[in-house]
Design a protein around this nucleic acid. Structure first.
Lengths: 342, 342
DNA sequence: TTGTAAGCGTTATCAT
DNA sequence: ATGATAACGCTTACAA
């Protein structure tokens, strides 16, 4: 392995000068040229570990998400990588699989390797005292981390869910059910809350308990919950789906039993990727996934750079973003899109 | 920052003993307990940079993909992370955005930080002599890297494309056009070749040049190419789409102009994510995305662990995988799925 | 501007 | 089984 000593020798300078060349410190043009020539000749690449050990900083940030195959988290990650790269940081990716235990493992693996951590907590009991204690800042994204004093960037889940549900009421549906994610997952809890509020505002009372289901954030979860809901003696005439996968499962189930989605309301909180058709009647509330990621990355970089004020909490509105993939609906439908944004 | 010296002092042992405890070397039970207690009390986490510097190895592998927001590459990445984690490695993620220059930047940034690199080359002129020269193994995935002697794992693109196109002919379509990715992107080239062969086998001669378009691997690319194709004096009656995004663009365009997909053939090489509806007439050839990732990771780990035989090249068949998200089609359709696998 | 030299926190070699 | 100690490759005072 070629080191700065090899380069220095070949260029006829001291190791310090080589280091300076690669760090932008002032060096005479002649020596700089010699160093660069020598480095190129020897194929020298600085040893990142040595550099980081010496400088005590890491230039890597960890991103821990529950599901790398969900376009929502993928868009979020894209936001992070863009900001990180622009600041000279690399991104280390971890898939927590919605498992608090796996998340904890990944966090402790990351500490000692990274300059900071961006995590979508898999549980409202997640504890980040380990990295925090080591001086590694943490930013929670998409979901709160109530037990730890960390910066937070989340979407306005209650408002988004409430608006989405209200939209179904406005469309004339009466019995709007809710299929949300697991208990103790913050986004899932808040989306139920939004649904509940819309219901109360509409009818002046709480919704029937049997109309609300909590399932994994998966297609199958949405499918099965929908099946179960439709077996009720008084089934719903519309479903508020807590995320995109659940929405797909719901639609899959409804189509499977031959239901026409123009007569049955479905709303997805969160956009669908690469959508070919938006079925008639499907309403989509867009979540600012990429912005969540960029904002989280910006806040993390501030912390890394020494910002020490008390934790901040930012709530991003569910923005009016025209989904470039969502308008492949039939022409007559395109004229009056049902796509709904808060 | 707590170091092994702090722990050693508190536990009344030498730093070496602390190191041994954390590396599984034999230590008396009493001392081990003391060390662990002290470490826990102080919140000690080993410094990865120091360890890696000393050991000369990194426990991190870089994954460089062209588009983190494409479910195909996301599934591939998932495969890599699973294998990597099982072996105690972390994954560093880079988005090359299909840009050879950006890819080169990410590669040189990764060298010196990682134990190995898995990359989907953005160009058939990609050169990996830098990492290779530094002893950092590289595995090319999804696409070949003909200029560098690296291990390769790819799908059988020619066969997949050929079979897909043949399927359209079998369905009775006559003028099957091809919309593939950019020139010099290997998968795009090979998929054109597969289409060409199917055409030749069907008609005994080469396809008309104007029936083949090369565009970016994007929805818009597929949309625009389709529009252009349909303006031909003799337009196609079916389209072979070189990847999932292009397929979505093609379908979007066709639906936009009011075409019924039961009368027009479209085949996508590569699955669609979270698909709500499979339009009648849409054929999907599945690519073994996750397997590509796991295999690439396995081969890379072998190299990292000292395997020094000549470069290997593995071609994965486009497997018979029933896409769990792709069967939400109308019931009568589900009975005779058009989903096609090679 | 340039060189010398002292660490950064760990592991591994050598004694004990 | 345990402890002292010398690297690993780099950055950065401090000198010159």
């Amino acid at each position: 392995m070629t080191t700065i000593y090899d380069v220095a020798q070949r260029a006829g300078v001291s190791p310090a000068t080589v280091s300076r060349v690669f760090n932008g410190t002032k060096v005479s043009a002649a020596k700089e040229a010699a160093v660069r020539a020598a480095a190129a000749h020897l194929g020298f690449v600085p040893n990142g570990n040595a550099r980081r050990l010496r400088m005590g900083s890491s230039q890597i940030i960890a991103v821990l998400i529950p599901d790398i195959e969900n376009s929502y988290f993928t868009a979020l990650t894209r936001g992070v990588t863009d900001v990180a790269r622009a600041a000279g940081y690399s991104v280390m990716l971890g898939n927590t699989d919605e498992s608090p235990q796996l998340e904890a493992e990944l966090v402790s693996a990351a500490v000692g390797d990274v300059a900071g951590i961006i995590v979508a907590p898999t549980s409202d009991t997640a504890d980040y005292s380990l990295p925090l204690g080591r001086g590694v800042p943490v930013v929670a994204v998409d979901r709160d981390a109530p037990l730890s004093k960390v910066d937070v960037v989340v979407a306005d889940n209650v408002a988004g869910a409430m608006d989405a549900t209200q939209r179904l009421f406005e469309l004339g549906f009466q019995r709007v059910a809710c299929v949300s994610g697991p208990e103790h997952v913050m986004t899932a809890d808040l989306r139920v809350e939004g649904w509940r509020r819309a219901w109360e505002q509409r009818f002046g009372g709480p919704p029937p308990a049997e109309l609300c289901r909590r399932v994994p954030y998966t297609v199958d979860g949405g499918d099965e919950a929908t099946a179960s809901l439709m077996r009720l003696s008084e089934p719903p005439d519309a479903i508020f789906a807590g995320n995109n996968r659940i929405a797909v499962g719901a639609v899959r189930n409804l189509i499977g039993v031959g239901l026409d989605l123009s007569d049955f309301g479905v709303v997805s909180l969160g956009e669908l990727p690469l959508t070919l058709y938006m079925p008639r009647g499907l309403v989509v509330t867009h979540l600012p996934a990429r912005e969540l990621g960029t904002r989280a990355a910006e806040m993390l970089l501030e912390r890394i750079n020494g910002y020490i004020e008390p934790p901040r909490r930012e709530v991003l509105a569910t923005v009016v973003t025209h989904d470039q993939h969502a308008f492949a609906m039939a022409p007559e439908r395109a004229a009056t899109p049902l796509t709904y944004t808060t």
